[in-house]
Nucleic acid binder design. Structure first.
Lengths: 343, 343
DNA sequence: TCGCCTTATGAAAACGTTTGCAGAAATATT
DNA sequence: AATATTTCTGCAAACGTTTTCATAAGGCGA
């Protein structure tokens, strides 16, 4: 009761209307189609808005219009630089289209992701982007049932349940591996990321191992290590592996963060790169070019992916009729720098 | 018209009510205070919700309750790792308190920040966090006028217009500089970040220069360079500076990103660290410990800042009466690693 | 001067919840 | 058995917009 009364502080459209001596409807039109309201009224409304410090209430508008102007993005983590460029590009593209980003991170836990999806749907996001291809059934079901425009970003595969834009991470894994093979490496240590809740990691792993077996090179179990996405952890693991008597001639790293860890490990052990050890990463993050020696890696066009995903979602919102199942595959590209060399 | 009719697809609380043979009010109570609705009704509602795939409409609830359960965070950039840990900690702390984060980036443009603030207020965020102390007048005025709980994070100073939690970046700059001075360095190159829209950078700069002058060491103009927050750019600038005939004995870097660039520059020029060149950064980002040699830096407890900021905002929302002007200063701490040494 | 467009406005009904109030049913108290 | 309490439920009025529909006022040609 008292709370209800107290919070009468923020001015609403009717306050503006009263002060400007027009009806609420006219004030509404002032904001949405200014050209159809008379010059006089416009001036008075403008003044009233200024005087009262009126800011339109988007929740009320959403309720009426059935659209909130917000778009959800759920990423595995914010901690790392991994999704930074994607997020930034996504967000920028959105605000170009007068929309706001509602963001959340699930910490590589797909059950938690399902919860976040529900929470975003509660907030009535107009559309939704999810990182990766694999998600809980509950997630897909919820999205489908509600008919929320949604898109899978980052990893690409055809004929998914939802539109999809990204790179094919099996290709990415293959590309990196074949580069090492082409350089003559046969004893390669693979540092994969935990594949369970991470289809990108799983696909890279599959691509890598497929490439190996196609060339008839066996990869013993002790050459496949699961490694966290963390420079320090990767460094520790690499140090351990490199101190062993039978050291590999090359290390494949599930992404650039791991690769950096490996690089530093090698340097700390005085192992010459690339003469004594080749290192390849995946991602081409900011800074991967600057390291010494420069990191050979597979570039993933994250900005373009983020931007395109945003654009597609906006299209899906604005032309809901078009049943086009957007599928856009971007090409990853080998970027050869100083960290790899012939065996 | 037809649009209005078409979108009747999503079930609302009244649909659930009808199916469960109760009133909408009871369904509402089912969600908000389940204990006061009878077992029978509960079961029927549960079934109906399941069958219809009902998801509560947060915008409608917000309109009624006057609170959205969302909290805004505006950062300068997402691109870099700089604010990653802050954001992650902030977001985690929020979801522990059943709230969602609405995030935006202004790209170090305070005018754009003001626009974003207005947009977040339109979306009726229950509270707002801004990075840094300095903001447009319009920003402060808007926030004050609306009475939105808000907090300044990251940089700390007493008696601000708003609550404030962070580290004193003048101290940070001083700490880094004094470390170099204590090691005997006198010819130090300062790579500051652009201070204009960035009070953190400005404060670090001031702290650094104050420390120098207090020790009676002059810093000629050509030893103060403005440098972007970007590894590659920093590396390029450092290479240039280090190739000159009169090379400094130490380099102060506005943050760890810049410091990494400098480090790689030195390595690429075969300059021994720390024997021939000391390098210090600021921030202690993920990975700064792993580089070879390890980066000496000033640690900023970003996770703690992010978490605490979120907690304070929640308190401010829940006890609006308490006029306590929260001020929490965290201590930065010198972390000595291998990149600095005596001159 | 009369009707006919055009332009500008207002009244009122949504949009999907929550919640104060009041009443009905069930249970406890005497 | 009558009354007092508790427990549960429904009605209806908000919350702050947008939008349809109707109408009033003004401009125009005849």
């Amino acid at each position: 009761m008292s709370r209800k009364l107290l919070r009468k502080s923020v001015p609403g459209i009717v306050d503006v209307a009263r002060q400007a001596k027009v009806s609420p409807a006219t004030v509404s039109r002032f904001f949405n189609q200014p050209d159809i309201v008379s010059y006089d009224a416009r001036k008075r409304i403008e003044a009233a808005v200024q005087a009262l410090g009126y800011v339109p209430n988007a929740t009320a508008r959403s309720l009426n219009r059935g659209a909130t102007g917000t778009i959800g993005l759920i990423v595995p983590t914010l901690d790392n630089a991994i999704f930074a460029e994607l997020t930034q590009a996504f967000s920028t593209a959105l605000s170009r289209n007068v929309r706001t980003m509602l963001m959340a991170a699930h910490g590589y836990d797909l059950a938690r992701e399902a919860v976040l999806v529900e929470s975003l749907i509660e907030h009535r996001v107009d559309a939704l982007a999810l990182v990766g291809i694999k998600h809980e059934d509950a997630t897909f079901e919820l999205v489908n049932r509600r008919g929320v425009p949604a898109i899978l970003v980052w990893n690409f595969r055809q004929r998914q349940l939802l539109p999809c834009v990204g790179v094919d991470n099996r290709e990415v894994g293959r590309l990196a591996t074949e580069h090492l093979l082409d350089l003559g490496h046969r004893d390669i240590l693979f540092l994969f990321a935990e594949p369970r809740m991470n289809d990108r990691a799983a696909d890279r792993r599959m691509g890598a191992l497929t490439a190996m077996s196609e060339r008839g090179v066996k990869v013993p179990a002790e050459r496949r290590i699961v490694c966290p996405y963390d420079v320090d952890a990767a460094k520790a693991i690499a140090v351990e592996a490199l101190k062993a008597r039978n050291r590999p001639t090359a290390i494949f790293s599930g992404n650039d963060v791991i690769a950096l860890g490996v690089l530093f490990a090698a340097i700390s052990l005085n192992i010459k790169i690339p003469q004594e050890l080749s290192i390849i990463g995946i991602g081409d993050f900011r800074g991967s070019a600057a390291v010494e020696p420069g990191l050979t890696t597979v570039r993933i066009p994250s900005r373009r992916i983020g931007q395109r995903a945003a654009e597609i979602l906006v299209e899906m919102i604005e032309w809901p009729s078009s049943n086009a199942l957007y599928e856009e595959r971007f090409d990853a590209e080998l970027v050869e720098r100083g960290s790899t060399g012939p065996v």
